[in-house]
Structures are given as C-alpha cells and as structure tokens.
Design a protein around this nucleic acid. Structure first.
Length: 570
DNA sequence: GCCGTTTTCGGCCCGACTGTTTTCAGTCG
C-alpha cells in the first residue's frame, strides 16, 4: 500500500470518531498523523522494513498510531477501524463530506431519520422530509441537493496528484516482468488532466511474457475485474482502476494515440484521415486493408501530414490548426522554473520556518523565491501586523548568508469584501512584490466579485493575483467571477496571474491560461507551499501550464532574477 | 492521541461569518 492509503485509514478513523463525538484532540491527532504520512518523502513501507527506523520519531506519530500502522502493514486492516465501522455506519463518512454537512449533522440524520447513505439523503432532501430535523432549513436542503449532484458528477475521479502516487510504483513493478519492451500510460493521465477516471497502460512484449499474470499479482490489487491475454483490469486498494493492454509492436503508436485521446482529438484525426483516403484506428493506419503506419505516434500524425502533437494539447482546442501552420507551442518544462513565488511559513499557517523554506528552495536550485504569509484578516492564521518588520529583518539576515538565492519579501494579502487590501500602504511599501487573493465571502454576485477583485488589482503595489477563481477540485466550485475581465485588467495594468500548483487548486484552469497567453498576460506558477515537501507540487503546476499552451516565455518564474524583477515594474 | 529544557498530566489555533435559530454547527484560511 502507498502512504496515502495509510493516511486514508487514519482519516476514516478520525471521521468516524468525529461522528461519535469523540475528544476533538484525539480526532486531530489522527488527522495530524494522516498528514505526516501523506507528506512523507519516502514510502512508509520501506521504513517499516527497516529495523533501525522508528515510526515513533515521525512528528505526530506516537506509540498508538505507530502500532496501528504496523497492524495495517502486517494484517491489512486496523481492528479499531473495524470496530468503529460497526458502531457507526461507514457510509455516513460520505454524507459528512457533502458541503454544509459535518459530523454533527451526519449523526443527526442517522439517529433522527435513519439516513445512512447519500442516496437516502438525496431522496429525503428532495421529498422535503428533512424539515423535521432542527437546523435543516430550506437553504441547507437546497445546498445538500446541489452538493450531492456535484458529488455524483465527480464520482470515481482521482486528482492527478493522487493517481500519480499509485502509478509510479506500479509501472516500476510492471517493468520487472520478463519480456516487457514498451510500457507507457496513455489516457487522461498522459494528457495530464487535473483528474483521471482510470489508468490505461499500454505495453508490448517479446516472447512468452508473463506480464498479465504479473499484473494481476500486484501487491495492491483489491480486485481483478478482468483478465485476458491482451487486456486485464484491476482495482487497486485505493480504489483506482487500472487497465493494461498488450498491443502488437506494429500498432503501438496507433494504440497510444487512440488510448491517449482525447475523444474529440481522435475524431478529428480520423476525419482528416478519411479525407485523405486512409483509415486510422487503434490498430494502425490503413490504406484499404494494408497497414501503412502506426508503429509510432509520429507515423499516425505523419499520415495526416501533421507533426507529432504533445499529449497535453490533444483536446481539439486549436492544436490542429497550430500544427498545420507550424506554430505548435514549445511547452514550458519543469527544468525551466527558476523560482517559487508563493509559500507560507510559521509566521502564518506554514509548517516550516523561513530558514527551512529557503534551504528547501536552494535544494531545488531556485534563483529566487518569495515568502508570502497570509495577511492578518485571516483569523488566527494570518501573520500579525507587528510581525512583518520582524520577518523581513529575519529575511535580510538570512539573505546575508546566501548569495545563490534571492529571497523576496512579500505576503499573500487578502482582498476584503469591498476590494480594498488587508494591509496598510506602509507595510506594502516594505515588500518586493505583492500577491493578492480572495479567501472569504465567496458567495457574492458575479459582477460584484469581479468588481471587488479588479478594484484590488488596481492598487499600484499589486503584482500577482493568486488562485484567481478559488476553486478546489472535487470540493468547491469556483466563486462566480468573470475571468476574461480579470485577464483584461491584468493585461492593461501589467499584472501577473498565478497558476496555483496545489493539486486540489490548479487554479487557473487550462483554458484560462490559454486565454491569458493570448492576451499577453504573464503567468507565475507557484506552489503555495505550506511545508517544504509541498514545493514539489511545482511539477503539477507545470503540467497544467502545458495544458494551457504556455511556453517558458509566458511563465514569469522561468525568467532569470533580473528579468523577473523587471516584470514586477509596471 | 501526541507532546514535553514541565517525565506526567495538561494543553493542543480560533474568530468572523452564515444559515439557522433563539444557542449552535459548519466553513474559511
């Protein structure tokens, strides 16, 4: 099992304890433990195998949680969780994750109306039988129905970052099977979509390879859904479905193109093929019955007189015209990134100190970085007003110790309801750059929200608008806002827009990035790291940027320090 | 349930806001 699977067990225990009304600090201890495991830089199971390593040395893991980790490792389950599931219907956990509902209301539904599943809840909400429960007014009922609809729409889809956790080790395992030649993931995973439904792996083998047997024998298989000589399907313990297809070598490129998609992209390919008198399918390129290509993807595209198109662009969003006209973008790559422009420290809600964040950025060979703690209006999370001078003095002091990285003084300044900024001008004046963002009052009307943000963007000190739509993948819709207008204002005022690389934000969306690029607005890809390990989220930001057609020149933090600083001047 | 320059039990991050009520649960970061 992967670390995330261990973390999920602790999260589930925490959820069930919460419904039971257990001690909140005990609940938090489980969540802290889950967090520690999830952000561990090495596989928990390699620690477990290491005699020397002590789980109890991990932060937030004591004797009890360490015991439960070992129990899960050795037996595949945790007794306490099994007990809890008997005491509290496990399906209440799903109910608890519907926006507007929490542990108390989940328990209320269960004990008051014997509702234990999302289906029962939906029926009750639609029939209005929730009225009888105190606290369940008409607004909340509507919210519940909407929440359930959103839940269904995303059912079974994994965030790319979560899928990544499973795919790496699985591929490594599969490559160890005898006779495996090619092995690659296709599908939305290869296109680096923000979420993936399942994982499609294609392979070619030589001789009598045991690949399919090897595949279904993987240690993390929950269920073998199908097994045949050319296609097998498994469900992993984490719930992710993986299909493995064995294809003939001469069809590998055609199959790769076909299974990478998108569907819309493939339809265009086949259509152009038909115009030119060739048939293109997952087995190859055919003239009549004769196979004339398809060993590589290049051959497929060549059959319709086009250059190979990057998977991230294959959405039928202009890539065919660009390919025809020789103006496919040269997409930004992880190694182009020279700095990270949003991160938090212990001064606000970050886990690590300024010094630790600097060390981590130096380890990434960045040339520059910005410390952007939350402004004070975020209750108990934001940095205290009087701490800015102290933090900036600390940065100055640390800066004297390093000439290989420039530490920019900044803050993630909250945009208040009226579009003013949450910090006075004398504090803003101390900063090298100013990042602004919305963190509260999401339910404004679209026009009002747009005006609120553009007013904040008009402040002369502002450089970057962070996570411009506020959406959380699978959890929260974007607040209503006119992104086109934000892009226009950014272009007019020489502001940059952030592409937030947190795997559950990836905000802006790919098509917004394309829009910004066309308007000449520079994008910064920032991790918004709240701990050193999260600086690695940069790669997900780069994936998203590539889906948005961005080249290095479109991304401000690919510029050398001097060039980046010039971009700050408006 | 974890943690500790407190070694043994008390502290652990919480305040404003919203929808619903009339005292509270859930949501933000």
């Amino acid at each position: 099992m992967e670390n995330i699977d261990y973390a999920r067990v602790f999260e589930e225990i925490a959820d069930l304890l919460e419904i039971q009304g257990a001690n909140p600090f005990r609940i938090r201890a489980y969540r802290n433990g889950a967090r520690t495991i999830e952000t561990l830089s090495q596989p928990l199971e390699s620690l477990l195998a290491d005699e020397e390593a002590r789980l109890e040395d991990l932060p937030g893991i004591g004797k009890d949680l360490a015991g439960k980790i070992r129990e899960l490792y050795e037996t595949g389950e945790v007794g306490r969780l099994t007990e809890l599931r008997q005491e509290v219907p496990g399906s209440l956990v799903q109910i608890m994750h519907i926006p507007g509902l929490g542990p108390k209301r989940a328990r209320q539904l269960w004990q008051g109306l014997e509702i234990t599943s999302v289906e029962e809840l939906e029926e009750a909400a639609r029939e209005g039988t929730l009225e009888g429960l105190s606290g369940f007014g008409p607004t909340l009922q509507k919210r519940i129905i909407r929440g359930i609809e959103e839940l269904k729409a995303r059912a079974g889809r994994f965030k790319l970052a979560d899928a990544d956790i499973y795919v790496g080790p699985l591929l490594e395992y599969l490559k160890r099977a005898e006779g495996v030649d090619d092995l690659e993931v296709a599908g939305s995973y290869r296109r680096r979509c923000e979420t993936v439904g399942d994982i499609d792996i294609l392979a070619t083998t030589s001789g009598d390879s045991p690949l399919m047997d090897h595949f279904v024998a993987y240690r993390d298989v929950q269920e073998v859904l199908a097994k045949g000589p050319t296609k097998s399907s498994i469900r992993l313990k984490g719930g992710l479905q993986v299909d493995l297809r064995l294809v003939p070598r001469e069809s590998y490129g055609a199959a790769m193109a076909y299974f990478t998609g998108s569907k819309a992209h493939n339809i265009v390919i086949r259509g152009i093929g038909r115009e030119r008198g060739v048939k293109i399918n997952e087995y190859g390129v055919f003239e009549g019955e004769r196979l004339v290509g398809g060993k590589t993807e290049e051959e497929v595209y060549a059959a319709i007189d086009l250059p190979w198109i990057q998977p991230e662009l294959r959405e039928d969003r202009g890539e065919f015209a660009a390919a025809r006209e020789g103006r496919l973008p040269e997409l930004v790559a992880p190694e182009d990134i020279r700095g990270d422009l949003q991160m938090h420290t212990q001064y606000s809600d970050g886990k690590h100190s300024v010094a630790e964040m600097i060390e981590a950025c130096r380890a990434s060979s960045y040339e520059y970085m910005a410390i952007t703690d939350h402004s004070p209006s975020l209750a108990m999370t934001g940095i205290k007003l009087e701490d800015f001078a102290r933090q900036y003095a600390e940065i100055d002091e640390l800066q004297t110790q390093h000439d290989d990285i420039r530490v920019l003084k900044s803050a993630e300044v909250d945009i208040l309801e009226d579009g003013t900024l949450d910090l006075p001008d004398d504090i803003l004046a101390m900063m090298d750059l100013v990042v602004i963002a919305v963190h509260s009052k999401f339910n404004m009307r679209r026009a009002d929200m747009t005006r609120r943000i553009t007013r904040a963007m008009a402040h002369p000190k502002v450089n970057i608008l962070a996570h411009p739509t506020g959406r959380l993948i699978n959890r929260r819709e974007p607040y209503p806002v006119d992104v086109e207008e934000l892009v226009k204002v950014a272009a007019q005022q020489g502001l940059m827009l952030e592409l937030n690389a947190q795997p559950d934000r990836l905000d802006l969306r790919d098509f917004h990035l394309q829009m910004a690029r066309e308007a000449g607005v520079k994008i910064v890809i920032s991790t918004d790291a709240h701990r050193t390990a999260e600086l690695d989220y940069m790669s997900f930001g780069v994936d998203q940027a590539r889906r948005g057609w961005l080249e290095a020149a479109d991304v401000a933090n690919t510029y050398p320090l001097e060039g980046f600083v010039e971009l700050l001047e408006k």
